[in-house]
Amino acid sequence: MSLLEVTDLSLTYASDGVVVEALRDVSLTVEAGEVVGIVGESGSGKSTLAAVLNGLLPDNARITKGAVRIEGTDLLTLPEAGRRRLRGPGVAMVLQDPMQAFNPVLTIGRQLVDFQHHLKDLSRADKAARAEAMLAEVGISDPAACLRRFPHELSGGMRQRAAIAAALLLTPRLLVADEPTTALDVTMEAQILHLLRRLRTDHAGAIVIITHHLGVVGEICDRVHVMYGGQIVEEGPVDDIHHAPAHPYTQALIACDPAAIPGRAARLPTIPGRPPPLRRPVPKGCAFAPRCPAALPQCRTEAPPRVVLGPRRSALCHRVSP
């Protein structure tokens, strides 16, 4: 039994009569102790997928198809009380926006203590001491003072680290981190990645990390899922994706990675064209076809097949053959 199993999940958002297909037939499996990366451009559905994993979707979201299992339990049919028990030590989340992550009228310390409510044997003082130690670990220089501060008194980077500390305090079996290092400089990022790696080596915790930054993926992930227009267009082990990307979108993504470009380019390359429309009805054919340099005529009319390239390695493309 896998720790996390998402199968053929489709999800829509409805607002003002417009229906957006934010996820289409998404499948994702994560084993205990594994680190899985999710990459893709803005709007491809990464945060939506993360929200599915702890069952905290906005009111206008509707899961139309598929299943989500955590340790064998079906999350979608689980009553709210059961989901709540899972949140925290089962699935912990580092939300994407560090600026808004903490309650503005309560101190960081108060919140970090409250968030440890599962640890029933510890007193509030014990929990505060744990929080202080964890803040020190994520590189906050005066953790005791930080506990007494209100969120607006911290920088974006400090808030982001505090949010990571909050999640790590629970030593979750699955940590979902949505762009956890965007507000951090390179040394800080390295320190955080080191901590995440320890979650897996010391506690066999699994991590799903969402990022724009392919460097982070190479640094820490075992496997990668590439998302485009609400679909997973390619998945595979990190090395394969880096060295032999199969899907034209993955190829373009890697070609555009600033770290991969030797010397100083006059202009950073970008993928030409616009992000795919997600509004219903979504056009037939491959979502990437309009921007794809290798598109065939059938790419615009027929939905691409999922081509299996190996164990846990596949691509959603007409051009790819096994």
Binding site: R84, R85, R87, G88, L95, Q100, Q111, F115
Partner: peptide, 18 residues
């Protein structure tokens, strides 16, 4: 209730009452 920090609080399994 729609704010991100409420989602954060919920994501740690705090009771709805709290």
């Amino acid at each position: 209730l729609a704010a991100e920090h409420i989602r954060m609080a919920r994501s740690f399994g705090l009771s709805e009452r709290r």
